[in-house]
């Protein structure tokens, strides 16, 4: 019984790995190679970073160290 449970857990973890890592990596690489749009989450992070730069909460990378 324990072995069957272990095989089931193995299958579930493999499927979850494929779903999260496989899907995430494929989407990320496609976005990085400009073949597709990035996930909306990354757009939000980028927009938040841009707002922070505009409000001078953080300085732009090229102005750091001046």
């Amino acid at each position: 019984m324990f072995v069957i449970l272990l095989v089931g857990v193995q299958g579930l973890i493999e499927a979850a790995t494929g779903l999260v890592i496989g899907g995430g990596v494929a989407k990320g690489v496609a976005a990085a190679l400009k073949r597709d749009k990035p996930l909306p989450f990354f757009k939000t992070v980028k927009a938040a970073g841009q707002t922070a730069i505009e409000q001078k909460v953080v300085s732009e990378p090229e102005h750091r160290g001046e």
């Binding site: 494929g18 779903l19 999260v20 496989g22 899907g23 989407k27 749009k37 909306p40």
Partner: peptide, 18 residues
């Protein structure tokens, strides 16, 4: 929106393999 198709593709590989 080309979002879930990547995750469905990633899920299909281990399922089809098994």
């Amino acid at each position: 929106h080309r979002i879930w198709c990547y995750f469905a593709g990633g899920l299909s590989a281990p399922l089809l393999n098994t």
